[in-house]
Design a protein around this nucleic acid. Structure first.
Lengths: 340, 340
DNA sequence: TATTATATTGAAACCGATTGCAGTATTTTG
DNA sequence: CAAAATACTGCAATCGGTTTCAATATAATA
């Protein structure tokens, strides 16, 4: 196990000082071009690699971004992460990723771990049951940039990256109405999370705008898992009269719901039209194919990291914009098409 | 932006030396229990957090594991990552994750990045077109543990975590035979990757063991995407006589294949029985539900990281086992059930 | 030619935790 | 009571870059 070469070795081998080597390796303009070239040459020759700890210790920058997500293994989230990784990698940043497994407790623990790892910035999508964001205060106090995406929290110092959930839900619901639905059930998650609260609002306003009654008893709230969707379908089947449309806040739950409805002999979309949310791969597999809202996860990840890095590199000391909204669009498939 | 507190601050505030503070914080047995308690108290009181760079610089350990995967946004891979994250987090390790996007070039770049980040160990699943593993030599030369999972490479110094792909494929194929199939097509990926080569072997030996002919023209090789599956279905439809079974090396491709076959009026499983691989969520959504091999991604991630950490913590200086094989099982669903 | 500006380099002090070695105080043993 | 063992604690070097400040050499200007 040979020893690591350091700038001191390079310096000795070249008869210059470590200071010069350091400057040369960092492309400092003050060092002579020939010297720099010589340094680079011997560096590669000796198999030198920079010791990031020494560097970080001195510079107090880690070039590492923390990411906390509820779960890694959903299509949407892994797309987000993929987008983040792409941009971060290109910009020379590392990603430290952890999952809260949907609990506020683990989220708080992860936040502290990230804090102790001294990440340069933190990207967060909140857990299902996070009540308040006081556990992020170490970051806010220290002025370390904190950025929320998808499941966001309001905070004057934090940027949020979202889609317009209300508008998307409005479109989805209006689409159902346009297809002739008048009794539309909405299945949603924890209303403390903006994404679900906003989708509910969009649903509600769409009904109102279309002069349909809004009825609390048409709202089913659960954890949006596939199993929960199956249970929700059971409830729907008991309703009298039977609803003729269902807008579900994610695709997994919509799929579970569809499975049971189909088993019960309901024809989709003829008896009940269904719209999901996220555009997960399953939405193009279930039969009939699921109408859904495309949630641009990959792009969201890219935008989030790019934004954070720009901020870190000091190019936008201006007032960081507080909310960035990405476009999403309704993808209409057979599960909701009752006309033409 | 208040200044960071260091062990020096704690030392000063307590009238002891930094050395004692360091030892106390690391639970060294030599320091007096009362002293230790006092150190811990003032540490929390002053809002101390350890500076990992200083510590890493001195100890030459990063407590960070590198992970390189082909893509993050597949169900299998995100499950693996989730499992890894769980174990790593519990053991106080960080995860540095990057994706090769299935190209050997980016894989090599990521390896170097990991090397320069001085990860304590590296976990890799190879890219689609990686030809040799010479780009890992910096790790091997330096004796930094390198562990492959799923898509592995043979190397005397590296541990591999896999499932028994050959056996799984053998079971899958034999199952098709047991269902009365005699003309079985196999759709596979790049045969340089063990997973696909082994699945092909399993398919082949199953045919032989069941006294069916093995025919090269029944092998379709592509990139296993859903689109590729659709194209493959086109080829299958042109075959004369029409095959009565298809074993596909992953679920996404199997799904694409099924879509086209169904469109063409083929009845699954009556005309053609189908088996996939991985047990992706789509396999329980497509109709008929897809028979597939359960690939325990989450567990694979857990085992990989646990193994690596045990190795790093020096508990298994013995001869590290070279291959760990996890169990997988065939999950039989309607897409292949022609009897009983 | 003397003076000033410019270019390039080096010495040494950091950054913050860890650890070998030595020192002191207290307790145990002979 | 002296000698030896035990229990803590502190000093100071170390890890490997970065950066301030001063020094020297060379070129430009008066």
């Amino acid at each position: 196990m040979e020893k690591e070469t350091t700038i001191y070795d390079i310096a000795k081998g070249l008869g210059v000082s470590p200071a010069t080597v350091s400057r040369a390796l960092n492309n400092s303009p003050v060092v002579n071009k020939e010297t720099r070239q010589k340094v680079f040459d011997t560096a590669t020759e000796m198999g030198y690699r920079s010791n990031m700890f020494a560097s970080n210790l001195r510079r107090k920058r880690t070039h590492t971004l923390g990411v906390i997500v509820p779960r890694l293994n959903s299509h949407f989230m892994s797309s987000v992460i993929a987008g983040m990784e792409k941009v971060a990698n290109e910009a020379g940043y590392n990603l430290l990723i952890s999952q809260s497994l949907e609990t506020a407790k683990k989220e708080a623990a992860n936040v502290m771990a990230m804090f102790n790892s001294r990440v340069d910035g933190l990207l967060v999508s909140l857990a299902y049951n996070t009540e308040d964001i006081s556990h992020f205060s170490p970051f806010i106090k220290k002025g370390i940039p904190l950025l929320f995406f998808d499941r966001v929290a309001e905070h004057p110092k934090c940027t949020s990256i979202v889609i317009d959930n209300m508008q998307a839900a409005h479109k989805a619901t209006s689409h159902l109405v346009a297809q002739g639905c008048t009794n539309i059930v909405h299945i949603t998650g924890n209303l403390k999370r903006n994404v679900y609260a906003d989708r509910l609002k969009g649903y509600k306003y769409a009904l109102i705008d279309n002069e349909l009654p809004f009825d609390d008893s048409f709202i089913i709230s659960n954890d949006l898992s596939e199993e929960a969707g199956m249970e929700a379908a059971g409830e729907i089947l008991k309703m009298n009269p039977l609803p003729d449309g269902v807008f579900v806040a994610n695709d997994a739950c919509a799929v579970g719901c569809m499975k049971i409805l189909k088993q019960a002999g309901i024809s989709i979309p003829k008896d009940i039209a269904i719209v999901g949310f996220n555009n997960d791969p399953v939405s193009r597999v279930i039969e009939p194919n699921l109408t859904t809202v495309n949630n641009p996860g990959h792009k969201m990840g890219e935008v989030a990291v790019r934004n954070l890095i720009i901020h870190l590199d000091g190019f936008s000391d201006i007032v960081a914009m507080n909310t960035i909204t990405l476009n999403s669009e309704l993808i209409i498939r057979e599960s909701s098409l009752r006309k033409g």
